Amino acid sequence: MKQEFFEVSVSTPGKSLTDISELIQREVTSRSFHSGLLTIWCAHTGASLLVQANADPDVQQDILDYFEKLVPKSAGAYRHKPDEDDNAPSHLRALLTQTQLSIPIYDGLLPMGKVQSLYLFEHREAPKIRRLNIHYLGT
């Protein structure tokens, strides 16, 4: 049995869905992970993780638009305003999604569906560098 813990960084352009599937697959391959469970944890309160469709860019835009309507940036709408006006809505968007995902590794591959990708969902407007803490348990 093999166990490994490591970190990767992802640059985001600001509010977006950044496909991290290839980045994570490269890590799996370079570390010779064969079969097991990969847990990815986003170490931030203004970003989250999703597995979502990748075949049509309109899906990504629909997700971004939906969250803009669901949790808008609106002056005076939120109690906490620690540093920037998109801080409170970004925390609430992360709350409604996931900051951790567990993905099986099978024969050294992320067994994603034909039209699935793993995304880092950035909720802040400014570009950020996000840390992902990753734990692997398997062979």
Rank of each mutant, 00 (worst) to 15 (best):
V115G: 06
H123M: 06
L132Y: 10
I63K: 02
P111D: 01
F6P: 06
A47K: 00
L23S: 06
S30I: 04
Q98T: 05
I134A: 03
V8R: 14
T12F: 05
D65E: 14
L132R: 12
D56I: 02
S48M: 03
R93P: 01
T12Q: 05
Q61D: 14
G14I: 07
L118C: 04
V10I: 12
L95G: 01
L70E: 14
E7M: 06
L23P: 07
D86A: 01
K114V: 12
T45W: 05
D19Y: 02
H34C: 02
V59K: 00
I129G: 00
L110W: 04
P82D: 05
V28D: 06
L137T: 15
V10D: 01
I24M: 09
R130S: 07
G108I: 04
V51F: 02
E27Q: 15
S48P: 03
L17W: 05
I129A: 10
V71I: 15
L132C: 10
S90G: 10
D83M: 00
S74I: 03
P89G: 02
H123W: 14
S90N: 02
N54W: 02
W41L: 13
L95E: 05
L101I: 13
L17F: 06
P82Y: 05
I40P: 04
L23I: 15
H135A: 15
N54R: 12
N54T: 13
D107A: 14
L92E: 12
P13D: 11
Q60S: 14
L17V: 01
K73Y: 00
D19M: 03
R124H: 07
R130C: 07
D107G: 07
P72F: 13
D83I: 07
A53L: 07
D86P: 09
K81A: 11
K69Y: 08
P104G: 08
Y78Q: 09
L110K: 04
L137S: 15
L110V: 09
H135C: 12
K128M: 12
D83S: 13
L92Y: 14
Y78K: 11
D85V: 01
G36R: 02
S74G: 08
I63A: 00
P57N: 00
L23C: 08
